[in-house]
Write a protein that binds this DNA or RNA. Sequence first.
DNA 1: CCTACCGATCGGTAGG
DNA 2: CCTACCGATCGGTAGG
Lengths: 191, 191
Amino acid sequence: MVTTRNTRADVVAAAGRLFAQRGYHGTSMRDLGKELGLLGSSLYSHVDSKQDLLVEVVREGARLFEASAEKALAVEGTSPDRLRALISGHVDVVLDNLDVARTFLNEARMLDPDQRRRVISARDHYESAFRSVLASGIAEGTFRAGLDPKTASIFILSIINAIERWYRPDGPIDRKALVEQLVEFVGSALE
Amino acid sequence: MVTTRNTRADVVAAAGRLFAQRGYHGTSMRDLGKELGLLGSSLYSHVDSKQDLLVEVVREGARLFEASAEKALAVEGTSPDRLRALISGHVDVVLDNLDVARTFLNEARMLDPDQRRRVISARDHYESAFRSVLASGIAEGTFRAGLDPKTASIFILSIINAIERWYRPDGPIDRKALVEQLVEFVGSALE
DNA sequence: CCTACCGATCGGTAGG
DNA sequence: CCTACCGATCGGTAGG
């Protein structure tokens, strides 16, 4: 077995792993080097700074969530169908990219103000997918009138963002059942 | 105006503020000293270590949530009444102790394994208050049968724990309205 | 609560 | 990607 040189993508992936586990400030460049089998100083041939790594991981998270929303909004069918697609897609993004999702959700606030603003607007755009599906459903009469799409979106996102905090893939509830429980809970909250 | 000496409680309170804002690893003892108008080294006349401060803040959070649950469970009335008391009490704990709650929710994972275990079991005990109220409501027929109290509790806690992340006291929705929206959303999810 | 430190570790650079 | 560093900062201590 040959030990190949690390690519920039390897470095970013390892950064996501450690940032997710120990937090951005809890991870040193030497920790990250060790994770990759090289010295901390060697990382600077791949990146300009530690912040750069956080930016890169968080951006990847934003891309993944955004791509999921785009797909979900394109689903033919009813508003509840698109809401289900949004929820199911979110679960997939989180569970298929746990480290990236965790870093995106918990460590983005460690970015400098400029980069943080970009993340906030990316999040708002993602949230707007939920708001628009809820608004359509209310207009169609499939979701209860009097529902506030903004608040309801925040509640729904609160539930699906928190999955990262408690869900264990090897636990008693598999991914499909998780999505079912989510859709059922959220669905009946909207009726 | 006289400048009084800081008490241990002042130090813990300031630690909660900084841990909540910048994270545990993002806060240095010198930062904390500056916040209190003294040197980092002077803090060691109040505490033995930085970890001690995190332990203290997190424990205070655990105490507050536990006290709230105890009060809510003692409420006379129906299961939905007690659920409302749990939600309303949780909102009060979070909004009246934002820094402590944030540190409890986001920084407890930075504790050493031993202390972290204690927090996890404290959280589980708090969650059990929600589970038991849901189970009673299902048994009475006020909450829909087929509901899983464990999963539903996690979903409810996901929503009310996330308040820390988005709610602004000076925003368009006041505390009373927030509780109403929460109770309505969660309530209809359980019917 | 300050003075005066300690060894360890931090993010990062120059040069190969 | 390593060698050999840099100045700054880290948590913490001794003694007052």
